[in-house]
Amino acid sequence: MSKKKTAALGAGVLSAALVGGALLAPAAGAQTEDSAFGIAADGLIDIAPTPYVEGEGSEEVVGTNVAGLAGATVLSAEASSNYAYADVANLSVLPGDIGGIPGIGEPLVAAEGTLSATCDNGDLSSQITELSVLGNTIPIDNLAPNTTAVPEALEGVAQITLNKQSENTVTAVSIELLQGVPGLSDIAGQTIDIASATCTEGDDDGDNGDGDNGDGDNGDGDNGNGDNGNGDGDNGNGDGDNGNGDGDNGDGDGDGDGDQADDNGDAPAPTPQPGHLDVTG
């Protein structure tokens, strides 16, 4: 079986592996505002963003495996107003046997545990526990935006960007194959994005800027049971352009994020959040 056929099979398996609804997702790269996805690929092998959430909601895919291209035990995506989050657990990309790429036998990229991307009211961040490229562990001490991680053996072959940030999108791991490999020449230009989140910045909440905006409070203060939607965002620029002091708390739906004290000033009981962490058992 040629590599070309392997790739084609990979795409075929992918179609079978994706959950319903994924086919309705936009093509990779067409992510819209307040949206997130676990994995997407563009090039010789196309993967529609999966799972993909736009606007409001959450999706999860368990046990995704795209033969020859990528695997992960859990992929999840979540989006709400001015917020998006995606995570992928136990990722393995190009899990070996890709002809021509040095280091055969080791995945191009592998991550134990969960890696994630968060866009919170325009604030972008990625979380990567442990990542290896061709079996070499990449130190993740200070994950600055747009950190490149390419072993010498892959120079000119692939580009791997961690915590990739562009405007209002953050992608935990972005891989681009720069050139074809023997038996798979058309794979040049292939991109694979893992855990990506895009969000908008909310309107001013009446609580930032230069402090001269009326009561300086979040309006009526009755949102103690949940998140005020956009409250943790872009204050700090001091432009004070909100002037009306109306304390707009976003949609005011109080989504129970547990980041507000209650009306008595007591810290809230938490809502367990879907996620993963290997603790010491």
Binding site: A89, P272, P274, H276, V279
Partner: peptide
């Protein structure tokens, strides 16, 4: 530090790290 509805490990539905 957090309240996790664990998605991978199955020994506990919720983990409090």
């Amino acid at each position: 530090i957090a309240s996790i509805e664990e998605q991978v490990n199955d020994y506990s539905p919720i983990v409090l790290p």
